[in-house]
Amino acid sequence: MSRFRVAVHIVPRKGILDPQGKAVSDALHSLGFDGVSDTRIGRHIVLHIAAPDAKAADAQVREMCGRLLANPVTEDFEIATVESA
């Protein structure tokens, strides 16, 4: 078994109202960042796990997202990085 550091991004699914994201978009517009068309605010989770290899670590974290870390009704997730730790 090796140790891995896995980072996951979880964001509100497209089409679902994200009032925090909208408030931040509006604030960015008032600062002059007119190019911002959408802001989604989610969470970033960093896990340290033991797995045989990076692929297995990735698969484990996907299962964690499906069962707990993300809500399948309202959120999308992506594995940002899988690094040896």
Binding site: L17, P19, Q20, A23, N71, V73, T74
Partner: peptide
């Protein structure tokens, strides 16, 4: 109950925050 799958859907942050 929604998280447990006893009911469908989810309850998100109030729209007015």
């Amino acid at each position: 109950a929604c998280e447990a799958g006893l009911l469908p859907g989810a309850l998100l942050r109030n729209a007015n925050l």
